[in-house]
């Protein structure tokens, strides 16, 4: 297994944390991982993405241009990455902020109202975790437990009060996917 994933959105949506949580969970499941952030000079409001590679064997450079799977949280990122995702890949789309349809037959598209769902849970900032939970549900790349356990390692101490709502959001995202596919 050698999986390249991009999490994309705008600065402030927790795009870095999303990728790092996925990488950390995979690492705890004894996988090789690399996490790579990408953002411009502006941190909040600008486009941002993080890249994650998860592999059974040693990762050479960890650098790539085309992801296998993509989690897309806003429209500018959708326009940037919609055509880059590899054939046969999975695309999670935050339908709360992206109305566009992905006009490709060769990828699996999952539309999740991540921002709305997060709002219903009581904190729209956990939209990233709803989307990541959905990706977990559809890919099974790491277990939901590993993601939940990794939160305390990835979030800084002063954010540990938010672990519960992040766990709820991850679980809700996974549930939404199961509802979509059943």
């Amino acid at each position: 297994m050698y999986k390249k994933i991009i999490c994309a959105g705008f600065g402030g949506q927790g795009i870095m944390v999303m990728g790092k949580l996925l990488a950390r969970a995979a690492m705890d499941e004894k996988k090789e991982v690399v996490w790579m952030p990408s953002y411009g000079a502006e941190v909040r409001g600008g486009t941002a993405h993080s890249k994650v590679v998860i592999s059974d064997t040693q990762i050479a450079s960890g650098l790539f241009l085309k992801p296998d799977d993509c989690i897309i949280m806003n429209r500018p990122s959708f326009l940037k990455f919609e055509n880059l995702v590899a054939k046969g890949g999975t695309v999670i789309i935050n339908s709360s902020l992206i109305n566009d349809e992905l006009k490709r037959e060769d990828v699996k598209v999952i539309r999740i109202p991540a921002t709305e769902t997060a709002g219903e849970l009581g904190n729209s900032k956990v939209a990233n975790m709803v989307a990541l939970g959905a990706y977990q549900g559809v890919s099974g790349l790491v277990s939901l437990n590993s993601l939940c356990d990794a939160l305390k390692l990835v979030l800084p101490l002063h954010r540990h009060g938010l672990i519960d709502i992040n766990i709820q959001a991850l679980k809700k995202g996974a549930e939404l996917v199961n509802e979509c596919s059943s």
Binding site: K20, A23, M27, V33, V34, W35, M36, G62
Partner: peptide
């Protein structure tokens, strides 16, 4: 810049 910002185990 890559090696500085990349996270690895």
């Amino acid at each position: 810049g890559v090696l500085g910002q990349m996270a690895e185990p």
